[in-house]
Design a protein around this nucleic acid. Structure first.
Length: 866
RNA sequence: GCCGAAGUGGCGGAAUAGGCAGACGCGCACGACUCAAAAUCGUGUUCCUUCGGGAUUGAGGGUUCGAUUCCCUCCUUCGGCACCA
């Protein structure tokens, strides 16, 4: 007898080789079919693939295969995010050239990826560190520059002292403001850097109408952009510099019109309660408003603030500090003279770096006013509701009209709803807790400010422009040239790519390695031809990954970043899968990038990726994040060798809710491995069954055959739905259940009947996307069907067959299930009701009483109330 | 502090219009096969029980004939943001 035991390692290798030889997964434009662009996040070339990579990829592959069987022309590409710090760090540590290290890793990872048996179209592989790729990364930079979206600016930027480079705002994470890559706390440095004007698209990025993305990602992006609505108000610097207590309303003050101070506020309705003003220590007008007597203390404070790290400055519980500048501003709504202070709780990086302080209605201003004994004027009175006394005593009773706040005993800042008081023309105006225009008080004051010319409606964002300069070697060069006479100009496009030189020293000096190269930076000015220097910083690698989905379209195309024919057919990406950790990084960058390219006329549509789904994270067996340092990394290579790819793929789908993830448990693989072995056995264990076939095939009762067919079509229906919804765990459990049914049917002598044959065929088609190798082997070599199972159409559900003819209906008496009655699926409500009431058990629990109420819930349940 | 997600057996999880809680699997126990073990197959497996039942989906309350599912309050865990004016 031929050995027909299941040896996954053998059949998997065999079919992978055949599929590759036959170019089975090559995706080519075919206008006769609807297209489906399925994309999974490309791996970084760190060296080894672990289950963190398998987890999004294997289920995504199953779904791509499902789509393909459903008549779509599917593009499912893969590539490598190959530029970046780890390569350079390996170079520093081990003396291996970053390029050598990276491409060696790619070879290994490509082998590992192939062992997964995915339907990747390898002919479209793209590597971001290839010159033919980064030529276009550079080209895109130039297009953005031409659009006015790339600019250079000197500012205080985040610097990672370990990685020796600047970082984008998004790449500084957590409470301790650490580097996203290495976890080192970042510091601030004043540097001139290249930025992309992402903030130009802030409002558009808040609009998710066209895309089907998880709420979680949309929320994270919305919060990150942090739009707040309010007003800008212009304060003048008082030129009368005599020291007059604030609040003593002096008329006839002269003012210095050249020194307008703009503040942003979300609460213009509290303007009348602004009793002082605070500048960030770095605010440009600080010097101007500081009086000679205060100069020393102001300078000392500025120095101290500059020395402190952001972490210290932004510590939540830190007590507020500040110093008086000696200067005064005029509150434009009531001409009050208010003192100007500097304090580090006001940040130069948000709004205008200057605030109007309203201590009565802002917690921070209140704390500051208390500490430095500044006046507190209440301008919002809580609603005088007898049912709801104002919290913490009665602040309203303390302050009266005209009270300058001296000796104020207001216990806390009040930020709730109420009525405006002490606010001139606005007294009595209602204020609620809504933001912006939705708040009647805010809205009225904004209109009034505009009519008076002292302010206007304004919106502010937390979102910052994208800092893309990196002082590192292993990245795409920024294709810009600096000339003494002509400033910064792009490298002419016909000279692209600006190649990264191989002969560099990678020393962690804090300077760009390219700067230390003896000749590389020397070039000529594209305008005048005189000697000039290249930009020696490289681009943030998130720039490379912002457009990789476009390069997959035509990775070797040399007339542009992508072939327009391919673009027209495949774009946009239909389904994108990957981790949520990139919510405010890659996923936001790539949306910005697409919109910028759209405005440059390079791409069409408003969004690059229509549907996004995030998988969860696979943790180590210790419930901690997998990492080499913790020693809890599970290597797929060994497990593939042990159980085969199909068992691993299906285990990853079966063991977790895909969108949740969870701790790794190698033992669980036994479950899917055992299941696949049982599948194998059912399809191959036939000698004695075959012998009895002709004699026994009629033995199966009509009922057995009918039930088998019903289960097959019910399963098909469920699995079809689950694939659409990314519910992989129930796909596998449904397949396991159906297998159990098929074993039962085999016991009942169903083998060989048309129902049995249909069941085996449909079973393998349903198995094909999740366990492609075993499905192919059984399809082609056991059922003897035409190669390949992966070119078959997804089966159609026969709704008639899926219907039950008898249904079991539970009967509740007073809310407890007491019996189950069997009725025909066609039974009407009355029939179900009478059958239920006729049950002896039900009658027993009714204790002879007449039912008060009988509810027949569809065909699902009968509820009797006595 | 603010925003978001989630709490179901020993474990992963199922229940997708408010209608049988615990599907499927892991693990465990017992049995068959075996000299034995592994593999395989079979049976059982939420808890309590006086064997009649009773309790049970983080806790408490509400709506309903009926709640894992809807509403309110609270607790816990995870993620994000955080002096953002």
């Amino acid at each position: 007898m031929k050995d027909i035991s299941y040896v996954p390692q053998v059949i998997e290798k065999k079919w992978q080789a055949k599929w590759e030889k036959d170019k089975l997964y090559r995706a080519a434009i075919d206008n006769s079919k609807p297209k489906h662009y399925a994309l999974t996040m490309l791996p970084y070339t760190s060296g080894d693939l672990h289950f963190g990579h398998w987890y999004p990829m294997a289920p995504s592959d199953a779904r791509a295969r499902f789509k393909r069987m459903n008549g779509y022309n599917v593009l499912f590409p893969i590539g490598f995010d190959a530029f970046g710090l780890p390569a350079e760090n390996a170079a520093i540590k081990r003396g291996i050239h970053p390029k050598t290290w990276t491409y060696k890793n790619i070879d290994n990872m490509r082998r590992q990826l192939k062992s997964m048996g995915n339907m990747f179209d390898w002919s479209r592989e793209a590597i971001s560190a290839d010159p033919e790729y980064y030529k276009w990364t550079e080209w895109f930079f130039i297009q953005l520059f031409k659009q006015g979206l790339a600019y250079r600016k000197m500012s205080a930027v985040d610097w990672c002292p370990k990685d020796n480079t600047t970082l984008a705002r998004e790449q500084v994470v957590g409470e301790n403001r650490v580097c996203e890559r290495c976890g080192t706390p970042v510091i601030k440095k004043d540097l001139e850097q290249w930025f992309f004007k992402a903030t130009k698209y802030a409002d558009e990025l808040l609009n998710f109408d066209e895309i089907d993305w998880p709420e979680r990602v949309k929320t994270l992006q919305t919060n990150w952009i942090g739009r707040s609505e309010g007003a800008e108000v212009y304060f003048r610097v008082a030129s009368d510099r005599s020291s007059v207590p604030a609040g003593s309303n002096q008329s006839g003050l002269t003012t210095d019109n050249s020194s307008l101070i703009t503040v942003f506020t979300t609460r213009p309705d509290t303007l009348w309660g602004a009793t002082f003003m605070v500048f960030a220590p770095e605010h440009p007008l600080v010097d101007k408003v500081t009086m000679p007597e205060q100069r020393t203390s102001v300078e000392a404070y500025k120095t101290q603030a500059a020395r402190q790290s952001d972490i210290e400055r932004e510590a939540v519980d830190k007590e507020k500090t500040g110093v008086f500048t000696g200067g005064y501003a005029i509150n434009p709504v009531n001409n009050e003279r208010i003192p100007i202070w500097i304090a580090d709780y006001v940040l130069m990086s948000y709004g205008t770096g200057a605030i109007m302080a309203v201590p009565a209605h802002d917690e921070r201003d209140f704390a500051f006013a208390k500490k430095y004994d500044l006046p507190i004027v209440e301008v919002i009175k809580p609603d005088p509701s007898p049912l709801r006394p104002s919290p913490g005593g009665s602040p309203t009773g303390v302050l009266r009209e005209g009270d300058g706040g001296e000796g104020s005993t207001i216990p806390a800042a009040y930020a709730g709803a109420g009525v405006m008081v002490n606010s001139g023309p606005f007294d009595g105006t209602k204020v609620n807790t809504e933001k912006g225009r939705k708040n009647p008080g805010v809205s009225k004051v904004i209109d009034w400010l505009a009519s008076q010319g002292i302010g206007k409606e304004a919106v502010n964002y937390r979102y910052r422009d994208w800092l893309i300069s990196r002082q590192r070697y292993w990245g795409a060069p920024i294709p810009m040239v600096y000339c003494e006479k002509h400033g910064w100009n792009p490298v002419p496009e016909d000279q692209l790519p600006v190649l990264l030189p191989d002969d560099v020293e990678w020393k962690p000096t804090g300077e760009s390695p390219l700067k230390l190269h003896p000749t590389w930076k020397n070039t000529t000015c594209p305008v005048c031809g005189e000697p000039a220097v290249r930009e020696t910083d490289t681009m943030d690698t998130f720039m490379c990954s912002s457009w990789y989905h476009l390069r997959y379209l035509s990775p070797h195309y040399d007339k542009g970043p992508f072939d327009p024919k391919e673009y027209d057919y495949w774009m946009p990406v239909d389904t994108y899968t990957g981790g949520i950790e990139h919510a405010t990084m890659h996923l936001l960058y790539t949306r910005f990038f697409h919109k910028a390219l759209r405005d440059a006329g390079i791409v069409e549509g408003n969004e690059p990726m229509m549907q996004l789904r995030n998988q969860g994270i696979i943790l180590g067996a210790d419930n901690e994040k997998m990492s080499k340092s913790r020693g809890n990394v599970v290597a797929p290579d060994e497990l593939v060798a042990q159980h085969g790819t199909d068992a691993l793929r299906t285990y990853l789908m079966f063991a977790y809710r895909w969108q949740e993830g969870g701790p790794w448990n190698s033992q669980g693989i036994d479950g899917t491995a055992r299941w696949l072995r049982r599948v194998w056995t059912l399809f191959t264990d036939r000698p004695e069954r075959r012998l009895s076939l002709s004699k026994q095939q009629s033995k199966a009762s009509e009922d057995v055959k009918r039930t088998l067919r019903r289960r097959v079509h019910q399963t098909l229906k469920r699995i079809t739905r689950d694939f659409e919804n990314f519910e992989f765990n129930t796909i596998i459990s449904s397949l396991m259940e159906l297998l159990n049914e098929m074993y039962k049917a085999r016991e009942a002598e169903a083998v060989g009947n048309p129902e049995w044959n249909e069941a085996t065929e449909i079973y393998l088609k349903m198995l094909a996307p999740v366990a492609p190798h075993i499905a192919e082997e059984l399809w082609t070599n056991q059922l003897g069907k035409p190669y390949s199972v992966h070119q078959q159409s997804w089966p159609q559900v026969d709704e008639e067959a899926a219907k039950e003819d008898m249904i079991e209906i539970p009967v509740q008496v007073n809310g407890k299930v007491r019996d189950r009655v069997l009725v025909s699926a066609e039974a009407d409500e009355d029939e179900i009701k009478s059958t239920a009431l006729a049950s002896e058990v039900v009658q027993k629990y009714m204790e002879g009483k007449a039912p008060k109420k009988v509810i027949v819930a569809q065909k699902r349940l009968v509820s009797v109330v006595v």
